[in-house]
Every structure is written in C-alpha cells, then in structure tokens.
Computed example of a mutant assay.
Amino acid sequence: METETVPLAPALARAVRRLTDAGVASPRFDAEELAAFVLGVPRSRLLLVDGLERTQLTRFDDLVADRASRIPLQHLTGLAGFRHLELAVGPGVFVPRPETELLAGWAIERARAVAAPVVVDLCSGSGAITLAVANECPDATVYGVERETMALAWARRNADARAAAGDRPVTLVQGDATAPDVLAELDGGVDVVVTNPPYVPDRSTVSPEVADHDPPAALWGGPDGLDVVRGLLVRAAALLRPGGWLGIEHADVQGESLPALVRRHPAFEDVTDHRDLADRPRFTTARRRKVAAGETDQPRIES
C-alpha cells in the first residue's frame, strides 16, 4: 500500500502565513528550511519533492509552531551554516550570524599572507571563526578562547567534527579572553587576533530569538557595549607580534565609537572600519605597531 502524501506547496504556504503573523523576519526561508530538514533534503531540492507523508507533515507543523514562538531556526534544526561549514548549535551558545562571515574572511586573508600563521579567536563561542580559519587556511595554528562552559562544549563538538572531516585540529581554551594569563605563552608571537565579543549596549531592544535564547554572556557589553572590548584590546596588544593584525566585530551603532577606542590605544595603528553587505558598519581592523625605545604601550586613561 502506498504511503499517503500531502502536497508540499499548500503546507509551505500555511507555514509562511503563520510565521509572517508571528513576526518572523524571514518567513519563507524559514518555512522552506524546516520543510527541507523534515524531508532530509537540501532546500534547493524542494522543487523536486511531491509532498510530505502524514508523519512528516505533523513534524513540520510542530516545528513551524515552535518557530512561530520565536525559537531560533538553528535551534530547531541543530545546525548553523557559516562560510563552508555546518556547525552544531543549540541552547547555551550564540548562533553565528552571516555578517560575521565577513570578519572571518578578513582574518583568513590576513592569515594566508603569512607563512605558517598563528591565529587566536577570542570569545570563540560555537567555534565559528576558529574553525573557518582552520578550514580555509590549513597551514595555520589556530586557538579559540571561550569562558562559558556550555558554549565551549558546543565548540569542542564542532572542533571534533571538523577534525574528523580532515581539517587541521584547533586548540580550544576555557578562560576569560581579557585575562593576562590566557595563552600568555603566545604573547608577542600571534599573527592575527580576531574576536566577535559581547558588544550589545545594555538596555538595547533585541528580537525574541536573541533576548530569550542567545546566552546573555555573549550579548551584553555594558552601557556603551564596549566594556569587554576595552579588556580585549589590552590582551590583543600583548598577544600580537609587531605588524600583526586585530579584527573586532561591533554593532552598527558603534561604527565611530569602536574605531575611536582602538585609535586611542597606543599599540595600534592603521585603524579601519568595514561595512557589511547591507552597508552597515560591522567590524574594525588595526595593525599592531612597534614600540620604540622609551615609549609606553599602555592605553591612555579615558576621562
């Protein structure tokens, strides 16, 4: 006896309407991703699918209901795409965003310009940037630093999966990325430091997916969003070799304040801000300068 199927198109249309009514930002994309997840096919192959079996339709409807309640799409599928990788994500870890791929790409370009580069990803989270660098720059030695236990567990899971797939293993360290003893053995020898730190200003309005499901430690950065960054600048200055590069993601409202903060630190020069594909300020880069005899390398105290 043939298994009864339900046409996919009307099921998708209902899901899109439900997600639209719930305020989901990308209702059609999310509905198609959930359908593809249930069917076990890439989203690009949905046009070749005739329909859903009854059990699949029930599962699809349940997932759409969860998404309408603003559970992140990536928590429902358990995966987040990042550059050429699929990363396992879920409760307790920040879901990597597409805009962070630009910062990762910049770090990869800088690393490729150096023979056998050493790269450090501070505030590694799921390991997205750490593992993207290892995947696309196979001669790099890559370290990731993450303080939160649950996030580090996700990063280690992803690192194990990438190592099994043939990528060069990375070193993941649990610790406060601003602490002077974290990776102190690398001080003065790192080619690229990259970070996607907590930078959301306190009391900012964020979506339910972020407010209710991203870990607070990965989001909030103090009144101006730059509290963690201030400590990271000191740590990055110690880690980097003269001429090494620093890249820091920031909020679109920090396109002037974060570069200005980096410029005030005497260890950095060639400070540049970069925009994302939506033409919003997204990340700042700088080069570690050499310290001449008699000069100080300590940041000036802000009034």
Rank of each mutant, 00 (worst) to 15 (best):
T3Y: 14
P10S: 09
L12V: 02
A13K: 14
V16N: 01
V16I: 09
V16D: 01
R17P: 00
D21V: 11
R28Q: 08
R28V: 00
D30V: 08
E32G: 08
E33K: 11
E33W: 07
A36F: 04
F37L: 09
V38C: 08
G40L: 08
S44E: 14
G51F: 04
E53R: 14
R54C: 13
L57S: 03
F60I: 13
V64H: 06
I71H: 11
T77K: 10
F82Y: 06
E86V: 02
G90F: 07
V93Q: 07
F94W: 02
W106Q: 14
A107P: 02
A111C: 13
R112P: 01
V114S: 13
A116E: 03
P117L: 06
S124M: 04
S126K: 09
N135D: 14
E136Y: 11
E136M: 11
Y143R: 02
V145Q: 01
E148Y: 04
T149S: 10
A151Q: 03
L152V: 06
A153I: 01
R156T: 11
A161Y: 05
A161V: 04
A164T: 12
G166R: 12
P169A: 10
V170H: 04
L172F: 01
G175N: 07
D176T: 10
A177S: 13
T178E: 02
P180D: 05
A184N: 11
A184C: 10
E185Q: 14
D187L: 06
G189L: 12
V190A: 08
V190Y: 05
V190K: 09
V194G: 00
D202L: 10
D202Y: 04
S204Q: 12
T205A: 15
S207I: 13
V210W: 03
A217M: 14
P223G: 03
P223A: 10
V228S: 07
V228T: 13
L240S: 01
W245L: 13
G247E: 06
H250W: 09
D252I: 00
D252L: 02
S257T: 15
L261R: 09
R263N: 08
E269V: 12
D270T: 01
D276Y: 02
A278V: 00
R280N: 12
P281L: 03
R282P: 00
F283G: 00
A286M: 04
R287N: 04
R288F: 02
E295P: 12
P299T: 10
R300F: 14
E302N: 13
